[in-house]
Amino acid sequence: MYIYVIRRILLFIPMLIAVSFIVFMLAFIAPGDPLTGERIDPAVDAEVLDQRREALGINDPFYVQYFDWLGSVAKGELGNSINYNSRTVEGLILSRIDNTLYLSVFSLLFTIIVALPIGIYSARKPYSLLDYGATTFAFLGLAIPNFFAGLLLIYVFAFQLGWFPSQGSVSTVGLSGFDYFFDKIRHLILPGTTLGLASTAIYMRYIRSEMLDVMTSDFIRAVKAKGMGNRSVLYKHTLRNALIPVITLLGFEFGMLLSGAVITEAVFNYPGLGTLFLDSIINRDYPVIMGINLILSVTILVGNLLADICYAVVDPRIRYD
């Protein structure tokens, strides 16, 4: 088990280097730089801009820029934002990442809490009314794009019913303790649900089909032949096996959630990493773009690592290979 985990972590290092290269490469080959575009005063002399470029290091060859960047990344410095009054990128990211994390965790919890019981029920009573309802919901959840689902929820629950706020991450300043906490949660409900909708649909179907699959396997018949009751057959033997691929997927899911939040955050004007990312792209703020790209890639890698470790925890056949 330990050897397995250590091997996985060692594999993590070359992947990290490859990711850093790709992240840098993407920013490098993108056309334009922070000093091009309509935000720059056209009256400014081209020579001045060139001096500025020289000072920022934009004119250096690729490898020099890459290793400069890599060197500072290794020290935990992601450079300075060009847009936000030269604040450090890591500072900017840190100021936003907590909101995105709340959003991700909320939507992940939403997914699990909704998908698990409905998936199990659908498998226990396939082709029942509720199963058909869940199937319909799953197809809708998959077919409706995130931004549209978000707008729909805003229209119904914020404008028509007025139950939840449609914007931001917290309403009034000056709240503290529990009030602050509940206010945060209230702001999370609509974007969190939007973000979790598609994965809820997927997991619901996934759990259902995995459960049905395991239920027909030989060992379940053997468990029944031992005289085990329904509950034991279903929740101990079937569920435990059906969750193996699901838990693995959840690891990946967690990595994907942060990057998936970009559009949802934009729809709800939620001050997280996603809105920062969009702003930076619009302003060609490359240090921030690279910084966020790096963070997102790393979370995906960490998610994969988590998935691998979870897999080994729940499936003894993996542990001993």
Binding site: S217, D218, F219, R221, A222, V223, K224, A225, K226, G227, M228, S232, H237, R240, N241, I244, V314, D315, P316, R317
Partner: peptide, 29 residues
């Protein structure tokens, strides 16, 4: 089942639950 009538299946590997220990699976009945 399992008490008055015991059952042995064709493919031994697929008649045990892969994620539980042998001991647990014998102890269960």
């Amino acid at each position: 089942r399992g008490n008055e009538i015991g059952m042995i299946f064709q493919d031994p590997h697929s008649s045990l639950n892969p994620v539980f220990t042998i001991g647990m699976q014998i102890a269960e009945p």
